[in-house]
Design a protein around this nucleic acid. Structure first.
Length: 269
DNA sequence: GCGACAG
DNA sequence: ATCTTGTCGC
């Protein structure tokens, strides 16, 4: 139905959630990725003005050509408050639902939020990666824990994000001359692989990698239009699919149902 | 006790 | 995260 693994419940109190994180943190696997994934899914969530409902989106991109391959979304009632360090207990259920609705099973996730760069080394990227058993990268726009030196201005430059004597992530310049983003290990990757993945799925035209940028836009769009299908608890909102694996001789750009996919330009942030 | 604090 | 248009600069 919703959970992918049923590893634990979600209706926990903040203190119980913290205890669970300490327990699950030991299961995170850090290792280099043998080969960069051909496709990766960006994951992000937005909220309605009443902040009573979350809209999660998952967008799959192909590394080659940075083309959108598939995307899905889900809406859910918010049951957990926003508490720094406990983000996954607020957003993960909806994100898991959205990811589960993808027609194309992603082999890698880039999650909006931190991974190991977390007080208990178990940010939302670690949580999702562990539950879905997928290589996962954490990508945040600001720091939760740790300090860092400003990296060089060129795309690809990075400096370590250090917390309590440990390198928990990196301040990575995805676009030259633009504020860096913070990359950290989620699960089944190491920091170098995580950085390589973020650079591979970004063109350098925007601060965020394409998958996350698209998921951010989709979730935000759905939150504003307070989309229909969002009536009950974990409910479907939209679903759009494109080409799956091994596309025919004639490539066809993904078609978005109900709305035209503007791929021209935009202003991030 | 005083700040810091993903989204 | 969210309330929100134009504007300055590469």
């Amino acid at each position: 139905m919703a959970d992918s693994g049923g590893l634990h419940r979600w209706d926990l109190s903040p203190s119980e959630a913290i205890a669970l994180q300490k327990e699950l943190a030991g299961r995170v696997v850090i290792r280099p990725l043998k080969r960069l994934p051909a496709m990766a899914a960006g994951c992000d969530a937005a909220f309605d003005t009443l902040k009573k409902r979350a809209f999660a989106a998952a967008t799959v991109y192909r590394a080659k050509g940075l083309e959108l391959v598939d995307r899905a979304a889900a809406a859910a009632e918010l049951t957990f408050p926003y508490v720094p360090g406990l983000l996954s207990f607020r957003e993960a259920p909806a994100l898991i639902e959205a990811i589960g609705r993808l027609a194309v099973r992603p082999r890698c996730l880039i999650v909006d939020g931190h991974g190991l760069a977390h007080p208990r080394r178990f940010g939302i990227a670690c949580h999702l990666g562990l539950l879905l058993n997928l290589p996962t990268v954490g990508l945040a726009k600001s720091v939760l824990v740790g300090k860092y030196e400003q990296p060089a201005e060129e795309r690809g430059a990075w400096t370590p994000l250090v917390d309590r004597g440990e390198i928990v992530g990196a301040a990575l310049r995805v676009r030259s001359g633009v504020k860096p983003v913070f990359v950290s290990v989620g699960h089944l990757v190491d920091l170098e692989s995580a950085i390589a993945i973020v650079l591979r799925f970004s063109s350098g035209r925007y601060r965020l990698p394409e998958p996350v940028r698209a998921a951010d836009q989709l979730s935000r769009q759905l939150a504003r239009s307070g989309d229909v299908n969002a009536t009950t608890q974990v409910t479907t909102v939209v679903r759009t699919r494109g080409r799956a694996v091994k596309p025919p001789s004639h490539r066809r750009p993904p078609v978005v149902r109900g709305e035209t996919a503007d791929r021209s330009r935009a202003n991030d942030r």
